[in-house]
Nucleic acid binder design. Structure first.
Lengths: 256, 256
DNA sequence: CGGCCGCTTGAGGTCCATCAAGTCAGGTGG
DNA sequence: CCACCTGACTTGATGGACCTCAAGCGGCCG
């Protein structure tokens, strides 16, 4: 039996996780939802720790994350790793595959996970039948881009404590959007080494930073669960700004 | 093949810089080229050092870079800056503006520059009349995304020397694509402080790294011009891999 | 000429990496 | 049941990469 974390596709609409995501940007038509649902009929299941694709693999399709958590990363030739993104249901996974012959990044499953392949012919069909969906995907990519640049700024210009704090807040916010609640306590689902690989730190130093955040009363930890005690202080320490507000997409033309 | 100076020449096709860029991904139809040319009829000129938009500004349009060099950056509240990207003719500038109400990044001109605004209604029209162009923009964004993740990995996981070297190689390659030549000598057009802000270093340390690269015979500097003497060695020192090869977009449907 | 900006170079300090133990929980096999 | 292993976490000591501060230099421009 698969153990799917954090949530079964609660954000899925009409059987499509991507529809759930895009629906938050613009209200989808029935035709659009049906088209997305058809794509996600065919799925692929991954065990926790499994690798969906490795860098430099020959690839011709990307994926839609349906259940579980995944991550994308790159390996440097000294053996160190940089985690680029954590992927949750509704996210587009390995999207650059549509453009590159060889995968630019590795994707692996942090928990048992389900993805739906989206190959080039399907994407081309989508472009012809439902061009607005492609525009919405492009919009979704912009949001991901801003997340990437925020992380770049954090890694390039902020302290270790700030980077760790920002990652905690980002993950908490993503989980919150998924399950719709305002929980302050959640299971991180990452080892300290993974936190380090995402923030450009060593696992040892991540540990010290978590301890420091704990000693300063911003977070609490117990049995793998993490509680944000003083969100305001943590946001200040982390230079964190949530950008989820301030989206505007009602100017797009009607869909089909 | 056009052969033009990067800063003031035009890699523009039929009067459109973006067409020049997208044309490298898939051969554009006359209709598509005309549509892009129409967009770039209206332009905006920026003096060197001018700011096109500041973070948090209310924005409703993005831009196409037509001439000169620009950069996008974010400011942190301790006053430090992270440069996110350098922008050359044909690049999409501030694309997230189409999705966000408030600009997520600052854009300013490194040289005198020309941009063409692309507002939401125009984009919406493009989506209806030439959906394939939107797909090509999405493809172009994937390439930019991979550049961003490469830089994230560099900043997070490589030494100062490697980061500076990688930036030099990246800029050289971009200039080379623009003017089509194989010159090894070029004018960087950046202060050492700007190099630092792009790589997550201080200007002082950038200086030392440049000196070191020079002493090791990989580069030469004179009067603001930079020459790559030993490209192989520099690539090794910088962990650099050019990803420009390996693109594949012939699977897209015909354009109109 | 003076002022400013960018570059250069040195000295000293800090943040984070590295190395090295050691704890603890869970799993496995006897 | 205990012995043993493994993986993640913890903690200390040490060192190095990079930052900070400071001063001097040269070119450019009013």
């Amino acid at each position: 039996m698969l153990n799917i974390h954090p949530l079964w596709g609660t954000s899925c609409v009409q059987g499509s996780c991507l529809a759930g995501r895009l629906n938050a940007l613009a209200v989808l038509t029935n035709g659009e939802q049906a088209a997305l649902a058809r794509i996600e009929e065919r799925t692929r299941t991954l065990r926790r720790g499994a690798t969906l694709q490795r860098e430099h693999d020959a690839v011709a399709e990307c994926y839609i994350a349906c259940r579980g958590t995944l991550m994308s990363s790159v390996l440097l030739d000294d053996g160190s790793r940089q985690i680029l993104a954590f992927l949750y249901p509704g996210d587009l996974v390995a999207f650059p595959n549509l453009v590159y012959r060889a995968a630019p990044e590795t994707v692996s499953a942090l928990t048992d996970a389900v993805v739906a392949p989206l190959d080039r012919p399907t994407f081309a069909g989508l472009l012809q039948d439902h061009p607005r969906l492609v525009a919405l995907m492009l919009a979704s990519q912009q949001i991901e881009r801003v997340e990437l640049t925020d992380r770049l700024a954090a890694v390039g210009r902020t302290s270790a404590k700030a980077r760790v704090g920002a990652l905690l807040l980002e993950i908490r916010n993503r989980l919150r959007v998924l399950d719709g609640t305002g929980v302050k306590s959640f299971s991180l689902g990452l080892t300290q080494e993974e936190i380090g690989d995402a923030t450009g730190l060593t696992a040892v130093h991540v540990n010290r930073m978590l301890r420091q955040l704990e000693e300063e009363g911003m977070i609490a930890r117990e049995a793998g669960r993490l509680t944000i005690l003083d969100e305001r202080a943590l946001q200040r320490a982390a230079n964190y700004s949530d950008r989820r507000a301030g989206l505007e997409l009602d100017w797009l033309p009607q869909g089909r």
